[in-house]
Amino acid sequence: MHDPRWLQLIDRVRADTPRLLEDFLAELSTHDGYVGDAVAADDIERTARNAFALFASRLAGDAGAEEPSAFAEALGRRRARQGVRVERFMEAVRINFRVLWRGLERAARPDLTDALLAHGEQVLDVVERYATEVQRAFLEESDSMAQQHRTAKERARARLFSGQATGDELLAIAHMLRLSTSVEYEMLATTRDGERLSREVLENGGQYFDDGDTTVLLRPRRGPIDWVDADPGLAGGYVSRVHGLDLVGRAAAIAVDLAERADEGAVCRLRDGFASIARETMLERLAGFTHELTGAFDAIPEGERDRLAVTLRTFIRTGSMQRTAEELFLHRNTVLKRLRAFQDLSGLDVTVPRDAAIAMVILDL
């Protein structure tokens, strides 16, 4: 039976995850050759967050916590593929433990210190088990890469797709990966059929990078027809034209962002995802002042707001009241009334291009 005081302590640590993450990133940043080298900062942050979640789950004895961790396995292999040296990787694991222990001590004060002391051995067991899992996966993947002479290529791919390579280094990477510097490329970020598509792009003069969650594929264009139009089975975030290898890193970041916004089994292009991306950026800049743009619209009941939003979205896409009415099986006058109702609430007339643009971005239409 679980000790309720121990579970209370674990809950405190879970609530303290932002502080744990901040402490981990601060300490790791003092170690050269990790963050910003082969491993992107967002990868580091996502991994640390998942590691602390795994520690908490195992310490609390959650269901399935005793099973081998697929996350630890994937992490060890990914770090090996990214070319991180084993001593640097394991130092990051040790930092995880130090930050976790400090977080436990902080959470235990002043009333749960006895609970922490009673479970100190359990903490050591959980961390040692995690370290063993990630190190074993790392070494197994390193051995496999050494046997197949892939280490140099994987490092080159990581540098290319991170956008960190420039000048002579970029030319060397292009030579190593057999990429032409004189052709135009297209890019797809996908979570489906990554292994098969990776083989196909390699066979056709392209390259790929797998970050553990998404496969980013770079392929020379074959003419005016976009890759995703020629193959309707593709899904994810798509960038149609990449003018030069020096833009691969930026294109990859955009493609991954678009893939996160794509509907299941569908392709999301920059035009499709632009409003959503712009909305996130603008909401951060305009926090606390969006009412200046939307008026009283956000204050109406959710059902009414959703009903108006469907009509607005369809009208902005079609630009026609008649087509909107036909697609939504409404009378044309009903469409007109809803657009006027939205104008009364927000002050935005979506028949005017400027107001339509504001509504499309701010309301994510």
Rank of each mutant, 00 (worst) to 15 (best):
L177S: 01
L179Q: 00
L179V: 10
S180T: 08
T181R: 07
E184M: 09
E184I: 15
E186F: 10
E186G: 03
E186D: 02
M187E: 00
L188S: 06
A189N: 06
T190A: 12
T190E: 09
T190K: 08
T190G: 09
T191L: 11
R192W: 05
R192M: 04
G194C: 11
G194N: 08
G194W: 08
G194F: 09
E195T: 10
E195W: 05
R196F: 13
L197M: 07
L197E: 03
R199F: 14
R199N: 10
R199Q: 15
E200D: 12
E200Q: 15
V201C: 03
V201Y: 04
L202P: 01
N204H: 14
N204V: 05
G206N: 04
G206D: 02
Q207T: 02
Q207I: 00
Q207E: 05
Q207A: 09
F209Q: 12
F209L: 11
F209Y: 14
D210T: 02
D211M: 05
D211I: 01
D211C: 05
G212W: 00
G212K: 02
G212S: 03
D213C: 12
D213N: 15
T215H: 11
T215L: 12
V216N: 01
L217N: 10
L217T: 10
P220W: 15
P220N: 14
P220H: 14
R221K: 12
R221H: 03
R222P: 03
G223Y: 10
G223V: 09
P224M: 11
P224Y: 08
I225N: 10
D226I: 07
D226R: 14
D226F: 08
V228G: 03
V228D: 07
D229T: 13
D229Q: 14
D229Y: 06
D229R: 13
A230C: 01
A230D: 09
A230R: 06
